[in-house]
Amino acid sequence: MSQETTHIVSYKTQIFVLLALLVLTAISVAITRIEMGPFNTAAALLIASIKASIVLAWFMHLKFESRFFTVMVAAVFILFLLVILVTFFDYSYR
C-alpha cells in the first residue's frame, strides 16, 4: 500500500511542547500550597486535562492525523465521563 504523506513534527516544536508541559507541572505543584477548598481538586484536574490534551495533540500526533482518530478518542472520553456521571448518581441517591 502506498504511504500517505506524513507530517514531520520538528525538534523545536517538541521542545516547546515539553516546556509547556513542565510549566503546567510546576503550576500544578505550586497551587497545592494555596488554600482554595474544593477548587484545588478542580484546578488539579483542569491542569492535568490540559496536559493530557497537549500530549494527545502533539506527541501522539492527533493534530496531524485524520479527524477519524480525534473523533474516536473524544468518543472514549465521553464514554468515560458518562460512567463517572452514572456512578455518582448511583452513590448520591442510595
Binding site: S28, T32, A44, A48, A52, V55
Partner: peptide, 19 residues
Amino acid sequence: WHLVDLIWIFLFPLLYLIH
C-alpha cells in the same frame, strides 16, 4: 509510551497533590 505518560499525568496530582 505516551499513553503511559498520559496516565501518570492524572495519577500524579490525584495521589500526590491532594490538598
